[in-house]
Simulated scan of single mutants.
Amino acid sequence: MTRKPALIIFILCLTINTVKAQTIPDFMLENLDGEWVSYDELKGEEVTIIDFWASWCKPCMKAMPQIDEIFKEYGSKGLAVIGVNTDGPRSISKVLPLSKTLKISYPIISDIDNELLNELNISVLPTLLMINKDGDIIYRHEGWTAGDEKKLVQQINSIIQ
């Protein structure tokens, strides 16, 4: 009987050690000025938050101004924020005016074909990914409700000292 628990623990240790963090690919997408930019050009020195959103998403509209405030507070400490808009061809024209209305200061790029969205298995908007300087996705947050900004700041503080 003592061998069975030891075997289970051994198998669990092997499983845990083989789990690898998902890494972010170095993608290229168009910004709101029509220029192609890469993740490598936009990423932060310490941590990067990628915010996947759409113009029709009400929680996204609540999240973006709060994320922008966090960006303004932590940008000088190595944080970058990248907004990835997922609107399709019919509604893409709303993105630039909307970002101006919300006074978003972080860069916004367009994933009009949802290739990046699909590659990262994102099915809920907004979805925030936090990526460390090694390119590992270390935190994933889906949806947005009051108080979520505090969770995000906690995660940032755990990385940026």
Score class of each variant (00 low, 15 high):
Ser110Gln: 12
Leu12Gly: 00
Thr145Gln: 15
Ile122Tyr: 07
Gly147Pro: 07
Pro107Gly: 03
Phe27His: 07
Trp53Ser: 03
Pro59Ser: 10
Asn118Ala: 15
Met130Gln: 01
Asp148Thr: 06
Lys150Leu: 14
Pro89Ile: 10
Cys13Ser: 11
Ile50Met: 12
Pro126Glu: 05
Pro107Arg: 06
Asp68Val: 08
Thr18His: 08
Trp144Arg: 11
Ser55Glu: 06
Ile160Trp: 01
Val47Gln: 07
Phe10Thr: 11
Ala21Gln: 10
Leu14Arg: 09
Val84Arg: 07
Leu152Thr: 01
Lys62Gly: 02
Pro126Ser: 08
Lys151Glu: 14
Pro5Thr: 02
Gln154Phe: 13
Ile138Trp: 11
Pro25Trp: 02
Gln155Asp: 05
Glu149Lys: 14
Ile112Met: 14
Lys77Glu: 00
Ile92Tyr: 01
Asp134Pro: 02
Asn17Gln: 11
Arg90Asp: 15
Ala63His: 04
Leu152Trp: 02
Phe27Ser: 03
Glu115Thr: 07
Asp51Thr: 09
Pro65Ser: 10
Trp36Cys: 10
Ile108His: 02
Gly135Gln: 03
Thr145Val: 15
Tyr74Cys: 13
Glu45Pro: 08
Leu102Phe: 01
Arg3Asp: 04
Gly147Cys: 10
Glu73Leu: 13
Ile131Asn: 04
Gly75Trp: 05
Lys103Met: 04
Met130Asp: 01
Lys94Thr: 08
Ile108Arg: 01
Thr86Ser: 14
Lys100Pro: 01
Ile131Trp: 00
Thr127Trp: 02
Gly147Tyr: 03
Val84Ala: 09
Asn157His: 01
Glu119Asn: 11
